[in-house]
């Protein structure tokens, strides 16, 4: 039998299927708004990929912003708990998890068993979230996959000091007009989000190892600047967008096993 974790985020639905030996059989990330339909669609896709059907899945846990939109879930947990579990599985040495999602950012303090000890969220302000980077990418027109190299190349970092995404956008545009080298601007954008997020995380306070997860973790420029800001070597989760779904699947397995006994 298999178990499933579904993470219905505000910009994407993610799913992980585990077998009873705790191995990941499949994972899918599908950009979508949170809804019952997207939950169903992503579930079906993940099953189809591995020629499985719904009756092969014994237990389903839903998490994320839209977790109430998964009527076929057996249980719901918050994404805080699920990210903690997921990271503990992938990187057991981690004690501080930083998740930068599309619309929010979180810092979670976890025990060596992946238990949540403390957490802080920011969902009021776009400045420390994926949204900020999207806005900037829109202005600069450079794919995120290239940001890592550009930041590494930058001889200095432009200052983007606005705490507000809208004003920061103006700052970036003005830097472009002033012909500041692109890599320096991108370094500045990465540093800006890094500062916001590290200020949030430092309130926990930070304990090593620290890892970054969530969609933004693919952006090596942000990873570099965030590591600098925190003064640590920042670990990055494999499958960073799916750690929540993974944690949900691990909870599903735990609950399923408890039921069996």
């Amino acid at each position: 039998m298999y178990v499933t974790g579904i993470d219905i985020g505000s910009v994407a639905s993610k799913i992980v299927i585990l077998d009873e030996e705790r191995d990941v059989i499949n994972y899918v990330v599908m950009p979508a708004l949170p809804s019952e339909e997207s939950a169903s669609t992503v579930f079906s896709k993940a099953l189809e990929d591995k020629s499985l059907s719904r009756k092969d899945v014994a237990y389903i846990v839903a998490t994320g912003y839209g977790r109430v939109n998964v009527p076929f879930a057996n249980k719901m947990y918050t994404e805080i708990l699920c990210h903690a579990m997921g990271i503990n599985y992938l990187l057991p040495s981690v004690r501080t998890v930083i998740d930068i999602g599309g619309q929010d950012s979180k810092a979670i303090k976890i025990s060596n068993y992946g238990r949540v000890e403390n957490f802080i969220m920011n969902d009021k302000c776009a400045a420390g979230t994926g949204r900020f980077l999207e806005v900037m990418q829109g202005v600069l027109g450079v794919e995120f996959s290239k940001w890592g190299d550009l930041v590494a190349k930058a001889k200095s970092t432009a200052s983007i000091s606005s705490v507000c995404t809208v004003f920061a956008e103006s700052e970036v545009i003005s830097k472009v007009t002033q012909k500041v080298p692109l890599e320096e601007i991108i370094a500045g954008v990465c540093e800006s989000i890094a500062i916001r997020v590290s200020q949030l995380a430092k309130r926990l306070p930070i304990e090593r190892d620290v890892c970054l997860t969530g969609g933004v973790a693919y952006n090596k420029g942000v990873v570099q600047k965030l590591g600098e800001s925190l003064g640590v070597e920042l670990l990055v989760a494999e499958i960073p967008q799916s750690t929540g779904a993974l944690g949900a699947a691990l909870m599903a397995l735990r609950n399923y096993k408890a039921l069996k006994n």
Binding site: Y77, T78, I80, L81, R115, V116, E117, N118, F119, M121
Partner: peptide
């Protein structure tokens, strides 16, 4: 937030 606090 409340649910996460309760979970912890």
């Amino acid at each position: 937030r409340v649910e996460a606090l309760v979970e912890s």
